[in-house]
Amino acid sequence: MILIINICEERLHYLEFVKPIEDILRKEKIEYQTIYYKKITDKELLNKKLEKIIICGTSLKDNEYLENLDYFKWIKLPKLKGAAASSLGEKPILGICGGMQILSLIFGGVLVENKEIGQIKIQFEKKFLNFEPSLKEVYLLHNYAVINNEFEVFASSERLRGREKFKLYNNPCEVGSKEFKIPQAIKHKIKPIYGVLFHPEVRNKELINYFCKEG
């Protein structure tokens, strides 16, 4: 069973950011359960049928989840004890857009301002889930990127032309350089935790399928 985590503050955004993922799973007859991130309890996390977790994205204006990262502490430090905690810590997780930001921030990453809207081509340098090294068209809709050395970068986009510095989220200082690239697909160096800044439910549905079945 796949646990789909909805991070949308606005109810109507469920149809845009969560339902398309449910539809992909339903089509493949993959069992799933969807829950809003503030309502996750030990019951969902300890469910013996739980195999994998997907954290969905949300709209450009919705940054509420960034102020509520404590709800995701279970990803790094399950408050459960013994075998259950150990087992939960090994469940594969796929974070999409805001979901990728959450995964990176929970493991100590840095959020940087980086608005990208629309379809672009990105180069996968190494095999990522079922994506072979190649140029892929992806759909982007985000205000922020994340940087974290605990994650390996598999694909990145060039920074936006004309920008030389990146502002830290909620922080007046600036970081970055001309060579800076935006991580678009990442994997934790030890854990089976994956993040994509693009939206695979748009144009790259096979990535979600593969994660659920094989990832």
Binding site: E16, L60, E201
Partner: peptide, 17 residues
């Protein structure tokens, strides 16, 4: 346009079968 005008943008049929 919505981002420029600081509006939420809802696409309730997005990716619908």
């Amino acid at each position: 346009i919505c981002d420029k005008l600081n509006l939420e943008c809802f696409n309730p049929l997005w990716q619908k079968n």
